Amino acid sequence: MRHPAPHIITEGGSQYRLGTLEGRCIQYDFEKILAYLDVKGRLLFGKKFRIYKEDHEILYKLCNYQVKNWGTCKKLGIDPKKGILLSGPVGCGKTSLMRLIRYITPHFTPYDLIPARNISFAFNHIGYSIIEQYGDHRFYCFDDLGVEPMGRHYGKDCNVMGEILLSRHELYLNHRVKTHATTNLNAQELEERYGNRVRSRMRELFNLIGFDKGSRDKRK
């Protein structure tokens, strides 16, 4: 779908201008993006949703990545060709932010957000075809990576998400297909969960963006 003015988004009869169109390039305004995300967040998650000032630094990185601001991403140490691994403690807002930032770029291919536990449960029912299913060229964000149960099909155990990450790594190398994820685990815990082989490929697959360990639980 072609968007003649992708920097102007309409929600509920109101227009939100996220920046200015200069030729074929959009000069985004971070403050205007924040204002739009605050509105969109309430529409998606309810009236209690808000953008917290303490999260502006994380959002600045995510938004510059999402709009492919190459210059700023380079300064931030972010590679726009890779996916995002957003880490942080339970309830800090990882899932909400990954759901939200898709909406600031309606002219880009969106990613589907899939709970990792749902994939593991699906494996228990239908087996290895679920791994093949996520080896396609679509963009995904695997939510709550690392806390999903081990898969078990006809008596055989399988580290389902570990296998999927390996196949997504091949897709990234060969076709630049992006994969995103959220996780509550740190690097050591991810390696314990998936092994060194998968962890090393995750370094190639993802930009790591992390909330502070002390980030509050916004669900309370």
Rank of each mutant, 00 (worst) to 15 (best):
L100E: 06
L100N: 08
I101Q: 09
T105H: 07
H107G: 01
F108T: 03
T109E: 14
P110W: 12
Y111P: 09
D112G: 06
L113P: 00
A116K: 10
R117Y: 07
N118T: 11
N118A: 14
I119V: 15
I119R: 01
S120H: 08
S120R: 07
S120G: 12
N124D: 15
N124S: 13
H125Q: 15
I126C: 05
I131M: 08
D136Y: 03
R138Y: 10
R138G: 11
F139R: 15
F139H: 12
F142Y: 14
D143N: 13
L145F: 07
M150C: 07
C158K: 06
G162T: 03
E163W: 02
L166K: 10
S167E: 12
S167R: 13
R176W: 03
V177E: 01
T179A: 04
H180L: 05
A181Q: 02
N184M: 07
A187K: 09
A187S: 10
Q188G: 01
E189L: 06
R193E: 03
N196W: 03
N196D: 13
V198G: 09
V198Y: 08
S200N: 14
E204C: 11
E204K: 14
L208A: 03
L208E: 08
K213F: 03
K213P: 07
G214M: 09
G214I: 04
D217Q: 05
